[in-house]
């Protein structure tokens, strides 16, 4: 039986707007090199890569470098990413993008790139604050900022921040800090019963027996390649 049958309604609507998408900015066109590095990163944090749509950006490469878009795109897909478009000036890449069914965005001009990085340095982005418990099946991401949860993060929930994570209640689910690689990021919680914690891609999973005995405030940070829980 048909759903939503009501004659006058439009089938769809076009909407303009800014959507945040992850860009994968290449510093090399060497496919083998790219593949190795992607493999390493996916092994460290598989969750970030699975089914993430990405724009492949090539404006950092010199104009005469030969880019095999087909191979690069295949390598990305193999690691779980979903290339949706390219960003570049080179006509050759643009042509291959069309052939592969990818979209094309014009390159970001030097001036804008500079402006963006300048404004980033100056502005302090306030923490994202969540006032409810984060429940099983929910995922929250604080882009470019800290994340504060005024409640608990339950089993089956996942919170991610590019900065630090503060949990006023118990951490029973997954918490990821420094998601863009900030090695100094930390996770704080009132009670540690986590399924997984990760800082800058270094992660550890926990079984019941591995939780700290004393049920008090816990801080998780990185010391070299090791997570320190105290």
């Amino acid at each position: 039986m048909a759903l939503n049958v009501s004659g006058q309604q439009a089938a769809f609507q076009f909407k303009g707007g800014a959507l945040t998408v992850t860009t994968l900015e290449f510093f090399t066109a060497d496919v083998g090199y790219i593949e190795r590095e992607l493999e390493q990163q996916t092994r460290r944090a598989p969750a970030f890569f699975s089914h993430t749509p990405v724009v492949l950006a090539f404006e950092r490469l010199s104009g005469d470098e030969i880019v095999s878009l087909e191979l690069i795109s295949a390598v990305c897909k193999r690691s779980g990413l979903m290339p949706i478009a390219v960003r570049c000036a080179q006509d050759a890449i643009k042509q291959s993008a069309w052939a592969l069914g990818l979209g094309w965005f014009p390159p970001q001009s030097e001036k804008r790139l500079q402006e963006v990085s300048k404004s980033r340095e100056l502005s302090v982005k306030p923490a994202r604050i969540v006032r409810n418990p984060v429940r099983s099946g929910q995922q929250i991401y604080a882009r470019d900022s800290d994340l504060i949860v005024v409640g608990s993060v339950n089993e089956g929930a996942e919170i991610i921040a590019d900065g630090n994570v503060h949990i006023w209640g118990s951490l029973r689910g997954k918490a990821i800090a420094g998601a863009q690689g900030n090695l100094d990021a930390r996770i704080f919680c009132q009670q540690f019963k986590a399924e997984l914690v990760s800082i800058a891609g270094v992660f550890q999973t926990f079984e019941k027996e591995e939780w700290p005995e004393n049920e008090t405030v816990t801080e998780i940070g990185l010391d070299g390649d090791n997570l320190i829980i105290r």
Binding site: R135, S136, G156
Partner: peptide
Amino acid sequence: VRDSDRIIGLLD
């Protein structure tokens, strides 16, 4: 309890 937690999330 875990499934109920999920459902409360959906109610929200």
